[in-house]
Design a protein around this nucleic acid. Structure first.
Length: 590
RNA sequence: GACCCCGUAGCUCAAUUGGUUAGAGCGCCGCCCUGUCACGGCGGAGGUUGACGGUUCGAGCCCGUUCGGGGUCGCCA
C-alpha cells in the first residue's frame, strides 16, 4: 500500500518508513551507487541504492530504465550536507531503497516525459497517454477539474440542480452543421447530437426546475481552429424568474469566484457593460479587447466635401470613413506595409478592404500624407482630425473607407493585430466585460433573409417588439481580454411572440410547428419567464491555464481533420453494420 | 472550398549557389566510475531526407502531384 506521494516528501518525514509507487524519471549510475528519480503526479524524489546498504535493490536498480513502473520501500533520510538539491521540492531528503520492485518494464518512450522541448503534435497525439504524463498536461487537466469543481460548488450553493439531457436528439434548423446518428429501429431516420442543450433546459424551466445547470458535451460539425473542437464542453445554466440584471449579477459572482479560487485574483465588480453598437463603433468587434487604446474614430463628416475621390465615392454610396489611430506608428510602420502588396494591405484585403489611406503626424502637428488626400485637408479639417483622434506628433492615422459593417470589421481586426505587434497589450490585465443590446437579427445575404444573431429563442427588448426585424435582443456575452467566454439571453416564453420570431427568420408556421411544435405547445401550459447562459468550459480553462490551444486542456482532442489519431476515429465499419442501419455510403472506395 | 508554414536519426534541429561518405546536441546500447541530480569518461549502433513522379551529369535542396501535422479565411444560431 502506498504511504506517501513522491513530491510531498520533505524533512518532516525523516526517519519514516515509506512505500512509494511511480515511474522512473531518470537514473544516474555511479558504478558504486545508483540514484533513481521516482516520479508520480505530485513530483519527484530521489531513490538511492548501493551495494553495501541496499544490496538487493542495487542489483535491480542497475536494470531499471526510464518509465519503468516500480514500488520502492525504504526510510526517508536526510541528504548529506553537500548533496542537497534546492531546485527539487524534495531536495533535502532521499530514500534508501530497502526494497525495489519492478512492477512493469517500459520501452524507451518516443519522446522525453518532460516539459520544455516542443514535441511534434502528431507524435503527442499518437502517444497521448505518454504526453499526458508530462507535468504541464497533468497540471492542465487537474486545473480543469478544479475549475469544474468551483463551478459545481458555487451553483450547488445557490440551489441549482444538475440535470443531464439527451445526447441523441433531433436536428434543428439554423446553427452549425449537425453530427448525425442513424436510427436502426427507425430506418431512414436520424438523431442529431446536440449543439447545445438549449431547448431541453428551457423545457426544464417549464417543468418548474427553477435553476438548472449541466456540464454538457456539445457537438458541431464545423472546421476546427486552435480554439474550436468538434466536441466541446459547456457550462450550461438556466434560471426562472430572474431579471437580466439579476442574471448578470449572479454570473459575475460565479466568474469572480473562479478568478479568486483559481487565479487568486479579485476582479472588480460590476463588470463594465458595452452595448453592441458601441462595441462595434469603438473596437470594430462584438468582443472588444479593452486592454489597450487605439479605438476607432468615425471621421466621415470631416470628409463630407472632400476632393479625395476614394473617400467621397464611398461616402456618397452610404459608406463610412473610419480612422485607426496608432501612437508611435509614424516611425514603426512603413509606407511599404500599407501600400498594395504590403502585409497590412494584404491583411485587411482578405476582409474586403480596398486599401488603407494614411496620415503621418509630425512635429508641430504637420501632416505627411499622399498628395490626393493632402489636397482635401483644409487647416480646419486637419485640426478637427487631430483633435478627434487624439493624435499627437508620432501618430500614424490609418483610414478605411467601405460600408460600415465591412470597415469596422477589418479595422477592428487590424487594431488587434497591431496592438499585439506594437506591444500595447498589458498581459497582466484581466478585463472582463459584458456586451449587451445585440440586435435580434442580421441579414444573411447568401440566403436573402434575416437570421437570428444569437438564436431564435432569444427575447426581444420589450420596447422593440413592434418592429422585430430591427429589435434589440435581451442577450449578453461575457468577454475576457477580447475573448468570448460565454453568452446567453432572456428567452421568449409566450407562444405568439415565439411564432412571430420564427416568421421573421422565414420559418413558415407549418415548419415551425413541425420542428418546434413541442416548444410552442409547452409555452401554453404556464411557462415562467426564464433566461440563462452557456460558457465554453474548454476555452475558459485554456485561458486560465495560459495555453493557446484547446488541445492542451482536453485529454483526448481531435486533430485539425477531426480525427483521433490514437484510436483511429473515425473509421470504416463493417458492411453488416451499415445494413442494420439502412445506410449506404456514397464515398469513393479507397 | 481557399491560402500560409512545417515534414531530415528515437527526439529537437543543422546541412553554403543543386556537388564527395547527410551532421550536431539530447536520447539509446556496451564498458568504467560511491554523492549525482542536465552526473562524468571511453566506445558504439542508429537515415527509403513523409510518399510518388519530373528537371539535371548530379536533388534533402528546384518543379509537379499526393499524404500527414499546425495556423488562418470561409464556416462556427
Amino acid at each position: 500500500m502506498r504511504t506517501e506521494y513522491c513530491g510531498k516528501l520533505g524533512s518532516e518525514y525523516i526517519g519514516k518508513e515509506v512505500t512509494l509507487y511511480g515511474w522512473i524519471d531518470g537514473r544516474r549510475d555511479h558504478g558504486g551507487v545508483i540514484f533513481l528519480d521516482l516520479r508520480d503526479y505530485t513530483g519527484i524524489v530521489q531513490i538511492v541504492a548501493d551495494p553495501v546498504r541496499t544490496p538487493e535493490s542495487f542489483v535491480l536498480a542497475e536494470k531499471v530504465r526510464s518509465e519503468f513502473v516500480v514500488e520502492v520501500k525504504g526510510k526517508v533520510t536526510q541528504r548529506p550536507e553537500n548533496s542537497l538539491n534546492p531546485r527539487l521540492a524534495t531536495g533535502t531528503v532521499e530514500i534508501y531503497a530497502q526494497s525495489l520492485k519492478i512492477l512493469n518494464e517500459a520501452k524507451t518512450p518516443p519522446f522525453a516525459i518532460a516539459d520544455g522541448e516542443a514535441v511534434d503534435e502528431k507524435l503527442r497525439l499518437k502517444y497521448r497517454y505518454l504526453d499526458l504524463r508530462r507535468p504541464s498536461m497533468q497540471q492542465n487537466l487537474r486545473l480543469r477539474a478544479r475549475v469544474a469543481q468551483v463551478m459545481r460548488r458555487f451553483l450547488d450553493d445557490n440551489n441549482f440542480v444538475e440535470i443531464e439531457t439527451p445526447v441523441l436528439t433531433r436536428s434543428t434548423p439554423e446553427g452549425a452543421r449537425d453530427y448525425l446518428v442513424p436510427s436502426r429501429v427507425n430506418p431512414g431516420e436520424w438523431y442529431a447530437l446536440p449543439q447545445s442543450p438549449q431547448l431541453f433546459k428551457q423545457l426544464l424551466m417549464v417543468a418548474g426546475m427553477d435553476r438548472y445547470y449541466q456540464i454538457a458535451r456539445c457537438f458541431r460539425d464545423e472546421d476546427l481552429r486552435s480554439d474550436r473542437q468538434p466536441e466541446f464542453t459547456q457550462l450550461d445554466i438556466e434560471t426562472s424568474f430572474l431579471s437580466l440584471e439579476e442574471i448578470l449579477d449572479f454570473n459575475e459572482g460565479l466568474i469572480a469566484k473562479i478568478f479568486s479560487e483559481i487565479k487568486g485574483v479579485e476582479v472588480p465588480r460590476p463588470f463594465p457593460r458595452i452595448p453592441y453598437p458601441e462595441a462595434m463603433s469603438r473596437y470594430g468587434s462584438d468582443k472588444p479587447d479593452t486592454r489597450f487604446g487605439m479605438e476607432l474614430v468615425n471621421v466621415s463628416d470631416l470628409f463630407a466635401n472632400s476632393g479625395f475621390k476614394v473617400f467621397s465615392s464611398v461616402l456618397s454610396a452610404g459608406g463610412k470613413i473610419i480612422c485607426l489611430p496608432i501612437p508611435g506608428g509614424d516611425t514603426k510602420i512603413t509606407n511599404t506595409r500599407i501600400k498594395p502588396g504590403g502585409d497590412l494591405f494584404d491583411f485587411v484585403a482578405q476582409f474586403k478592404a480596398k486599401g488603407l489611406a494614411f496620415i503621418r503626424v509630425r512635429e508641430g502637428n504637420t501632416i505627411d500624407t499622399i498628395g490626393a488626400l493632402k489636397d482635401s485637408l483644409t487647416p480646419e479639417v486637419s485640426a478637427s482630425l487631430l483633435e478627434r483622434t487624439g493624435a499627437e506628433p508620432g501618430h500614424l492615422l490609418l483610414f478605411g473607407a467601405s460600408d460600415e459593417t465591412t470597415v469596422l470589421d477589418y479595422l477592428g481586426r487590424l487594431r488587434l493585430k497591431l496592438g499585439e505587434e506594437l506591444g500595447f497589450i498589458d498581459h497582466t490585465k484581466n478585463n472582463l466585460l459584458w456586451v449587451t443590446d445585440f440586435p435580434m437579427f442580421e441579414f444573411n445575404t447568401d440566403e436573402n433573409r434575416l437570421e437570428a444573431l444569437h438564436h431564435p429563442f432569444t427575447a426581444p427588448h420589450p420596447d422593440d417588439v413592434e418592429d422585430l426585424a430591427h429589435a434589440r435582443a435581451l442577450a449578453y456575452d461575457i468577454v475576457w481580454n477580447g475573448i468570448e467566454l460565454g453568452g446567453g439571453s432572456l428567452r421568449i416564453y409566450q407562444r405568439e411572440l415565439q411564432e412571430k420570431v420564427f416568421a421573421t427568420i422565414g420559418l413558415t408556421s407549418e415548419e415551425a410547428k413541425e420542428k418546434f411544435g413541442f416548444l410552442l405547445e409547452a409555452f401554453e401550459y404556464g411557462t415562467p419567464p426564464h433566461g440563462g447562459i452557456a460558457y465554453g468550459l474548454d476555452r475558459f480553462v485554456m485561458l486560465l491555464a495560459g495555453m493557446d490551444s484547446l488541445r492542451e486542456v482536453i485529454a483526448f482532442p481531435k486533430t485539425q481533420k477531426a480525427q483521433d489519431t490514437m484510436f483511429g476515429a473515425p473509421s470504416h465499419v463493417d458492411a453488416k453494420q451499415l445494413r442494420e442501419l439502412s445506410v449506404r455510403s456514397t464515398a469513393p472506395q479507397s
